[in-house]
Write a protein that binds this DNA or RNA. Structure first.
Lengths: 218, 218
DNA sequence: GTCTATAATCAGATAGAC
DNA sequence: GTCTATCTGATTATAGAC
């Protein structure tokens, strides 16, 4: 391992993920990335073929580490039998924190990337994630239903997306929000604390009683 | 009033808001808008001066109707004295539904636009909203704190953004989500029902007990 | 593998005739 | 007010020398 020389490919990946976090995928240009990485513009297409492929490879670095752990953690919870939404959401913390091993600040980077990926509805990304990790996601969905047996299938569907929205929005704007919070309340929030805070919140909402039936049109 | 002829300016506004909802502000080009509106490309700059101004004008049509009602509703709640998060969030429903008067499907359109505006961090938009409607937003903030006196200022700050995240994310992706829900559960959700559902959810999370103190670094 | 140079396309904005 | 035509600048992607 040569500590001094980082390969061009990795320099691009590192610069890209940082800029994707800050600006989003569409608003980050290849010129932006290559100048940040101090590499030539053409090298992106040499190493990755296209911007789309670069985006997928950036996410893949994290997903290939996260997903197996996530799946294992969920399986253990399901087998143990005593599933609550608090426990289920808390089971996401350790796998997420393990992404610090992938890159410095890896957890924060990944969650923000995931938020962007979910929000900026890029067809190729959703397709990529579904193809690669669909099985794990189905397992998670099963666990969600087991955690809140008092809720209808439809209600679980919507609450899962409400919860996801809190995470996605918070992480995507966490830089701005943390700065505001730091300025107003003189408090610096680490990513792990923020994750725990949002998980406490979504667990409460997720397991709230089934509401009275609202008008539904078939 | 001539029912047949819609002014070019309004044709542009109508086409723009629809496309902004679907694609976001950045991904909607002026060419996109003018061809949808069947008007000439140059007419956008003639009537609005710039794309930024067009975006602001699109939002202004709704904000000028919504904000006074919102402020009044909140003031009444504060004066009545018995403030709960459930009541406060429910007080948002009627003002939001009144946007149906502005345009057909106005509520849905506005909430999606607002979601996009909040998420796609466009400096000019945040500035515009703060300048024009900062007073109303401060009133809302005050009411939020009164509704959950058991929570710290810091906790209210974060939970408000968690709640906002659920709304923003849900509305921004409500088309895709509604389609999935309709296909999987054979249920069609009206915008008012969706708003009520998300409000039931965020009110539960918002007023959850203050969590144990997490590690905070000054 | 890396570079320069450039192709091909799309964006927002504008000048000037009508 | 509306149109055509065009400007200016940015983007992704690629060809070909080294």
């Amino acid at each position: 391992m040569n500590k001094i020389k980082v390969s061009t490919k990795n320099r691009i990946l590192n610069a890209a993920e940082q800029l994707f976090c800050e600006l989003g995928f569409d608003n980050t240009s290849l010129r932006n990335i290559t100048s940040e990485a101090n590499v030539n513009l053409a090298s992106v297409n040499y190493h990755f073929g296209s911007k789309k492929q670069l985006i997928q490879d950036v996410l893949h670095r994290y997903l290939q580490v996260l997903m197996p752990q996530l799946e294992q953690g969920i399986d253990e919870l399901i087998e143990a039998g005593d599933l609550s939404s608090e426990k289920l959401f808390n089971a996401l913390v350790d796998p997420l924190m393990s992404l610090e091993q992938v890159r410095p600040n890896g957890t924060k980077i990944f969650v923000q990337l995931f938020a962007r990926a979910y929000y900026e509805s890029q067809g190729h990304l959703r397709k990529f994630i579904t193809n690669q990790y669909g099985t794990s996601l189905k397992r998670l969905n099963k666990a969600l239903h087991l955690a809140v047996p008092h809720l209808s299938t439809n209600e679980v569907f919507w609450r899962w997306h409400f919860a996801l929205g809190s995470c996605v929005f918070t992480m995507a704007s966490s830089k701005a929000l943390s700065e505001i919070a730091a300025a107003d309340y003189h408090q610096h929030m680490e990513i792990e604390d923020l994750i725990k805070k949002v998980i406490h919140y979504i667990a409460a909402g997720f397991s709230a009683p089934q509401p009275e039936k609202v008008r539904l049109v078939s």
